[in-house]
Nucleic acid binder design. Structure first.
Lengths: 210, 210
DNA sequence: CGTTAAAATTGACTGCAGTCAAAATGTATA
DNA sequence: TATACATTTTGACTGCAGTCAATTTTAACG
């Protein structure tokens, strides 16, 4: 690796490191780019040749973090467990990480779920990694008869993911305590697996189109 | 009403009107407070005695809009329809309004779901109005045997609301076309009603606690 | 009315995100 | 090594969100 490339990597790390440290110490809004630059030992302008904006520093950090989590998950996931248990582990692990850096997590979720650009979005690369983890679990679940086979994987994901988002949101807006998260998520996951209709009236086969 | 109060109302309306017009014309980021002030015929500082921040102008507008929608909904809702149909109407109506002002909708959702303040949140007042509409529908649904009675109303709401959020997010990030929204939402709602498990294995009674 | 207190309005001011032309540093070639 | 070119770094500069002390407008009362 050339001198140039080495320096670039070192600089990027320094910026990210300074940013994380300052954001966690003083909060995102109370940290200025100039402060980050000083702590990283570079000029202000340099930061903008590594990151598009203040927000994208967060995005860079979060994606790096989440990738780490994903690797962890693949390692620790137990193929024998039920879909419910595996989903709970995955989303609770993710939740724990998010809440360790609430500031980052919040801004990342905002940006990911309701992006600035509208439309042309580059998150698909990131979605892929999600699916790489979730799809096999769902596939196995279907094979074991735990999940309906007439629902696409994408839609199955959607149900769990949407509930995860809701619970996170409830925590961020102070409607639920951290200690209550796991139970709430479990309850919701169970309910969505079992359905909201009474058993007697359950008609799954999809012939109930109006 | 005193002269003072009249003027205040008029001024607030003028600010909101100028803001909406400019935001829709040039976008939120490209509109400055000073421009809004000029279009509203007031000084810059005045805006800050009516709104806490640039963001809260959006919030003010959205809450005003959503309140209008809610009234509409109560009027047009048909108690005889199935829970599925009523939920679809409610969330599709809301979706339509959000997407008429995508800029506003996006910022409102961000702020509502992942607020700045963290914890102390004043949205509970607004939640109430949501529940005033949804709870009666769910109550009726339970009475008619369309919905399980062992699930709290709050949790029943959670399922529908979370899917609504997911679909909106999918639209905002360009993963789904506007024309496909209704079908997607309907499919997801149906699935959550029927459950993700195959019928044969459905065990609703909640005695499957580990 | 005239006087005084309270409320509303204002724009100059502060601090920060993001830009950009110029300077510094690294690379390739003779 | 010297020269020319490419990449990276830099901080002065621009424009805007949000503040605040000073000013103007309204209300209350003798």
């Amino acid at each position: 690796m050339s001198i140039r490339e080495e320096k670039k990597k070192k600089t990027k790390r320094a910026i990210l490191h300074a940013a994380i440290s300052l954001f966690n110490k003083k909060g995102y809004d109370n940290t200025s780019i100039e402060q980050i630059a000083q702590n990283a030992g570079v000029g202000k302008g340099t930061i903008y040749s590594y990151f598009d904006s203040k927000k994208s520093i967060i995005k860079g950090f979060c994606e790096y973090e989440l990738e780490k989590i994903h690797h962890q998950l693949v390692a620790q996931s137990n193929e024998q467990s039920s879909v419910l248990e595996q989903m709970l582990i995955i989303f609770m692990t993710e939740f724990d990480h998010v809440t360790q850096n609430p500031e980052f997590g919040r801004l990342y979720l905002r940006e990911t779920l309701f992006p600035d650009n509208m439309g042309r979005n580059n998150a698909s690369d990131f979605d892929e990694k999600y699916f790489e983890i979730l799809f096999p679990i769902l596939e196995k679940g279907q094979q074991r008869g735990e999940l309906r086979e007439d629902i696409e994987h994408l839609y199955l994901c959607a149900h769990f993911y949407s509930l995860y988002i809701l619970v996170i949101s409830a925590w961020y807006s102070g409607r639920i305590e951290k200690s209550a998260i796991q139970d709430a998520m479990k309850t919701l996951f169970k309910q969505t697996l079992d359905g909201l209709r009474p058993v007697s009236q359950n008609h799954t086969t999809g012939n109930n189109n109006d």
